[in-house]
Design a protein around this nucleic acid. Structure first.
Lengths: 98, 98
DNA sequence: TTCATTTACTTTGTATTTCAAAGTGAATAA
DNA sequence: TTATTCACTTTGAAATACAAAGTAAATGAA
């Protein structure tokens, strides 16, 4: 069990970050506003979690203008996807009894 | 996704509490020392997480003497088991794409 | 041109959480 | 009597999470 627990990634323990990552596993790009709506969080809160994931290089940012409005979208890096998969696998093992 | 996220239980977000609960899902009783060894945590840390789970009534304590030594063991309540299952289901749904 | 609005933040400050380390009381062991 | 073990509790520091308010850059409306 110790070995399983050590694959539980602190960066993904939080609900918001879990939500961000799973959104980015399913959709290649998700915008700031979509995430905000999806996760029901404030701008500041979301921004800080995104920054945390960015710092770990689990996600990357793309900034552009869409319909003449600034638009920031995020994508999971391959490192991020791998790390998230490991985390999920650890959870599954833990749950699946030992 | 909002509805899934709201089933993510804050009480189980932490690694130690995740470990405690999954140990108690598989084994009816687990002692303080077994948990400590299993989870690789200090007494104080473990005690505080156990107390948190106890406060939520997700686990119960049994105190007795075994081989003339004090022994404290823990078990998940049915409420705790249900809550943990819900949490796990939410995680699975989240991961299983949306 | 000026003012308002939107986006995507940053900053600030507070509250909560987490954790290790040290201390404690009750019991047994030497 | 002193030491040791168990299962904590207390203390305190550090990290985390969060809302609220503030901000810059761009567009839109008057």
């Amino acid at each position: 069990m110790k070995d399983i627990l050590k694959n539980i990634n602190k960066a993904f323990e939080n609900k918001v970050r879990l939500g961000v990552m799973s959104a980015l596993m399913v959709n290649e790009y998700v915008s700031f506003n979509e995430l905000k709506e999806l996760l029901n969080v404030t701008d500041g809160n979301l921004a800080s979690h995104l920054k945390g994931l960015e710092k770990e290089e689990y996600i990357v940012v793309y900034k552009e203008f869409v319909d003449r409005k600034p638009n920031t979208k995020y994508a999971a890096t391959s490192v991020g996807k791998e790390a998230f998969k490991k985390h999920i696998e650890a959870l599954e093992k833990l749950i699946g009894g030992k």
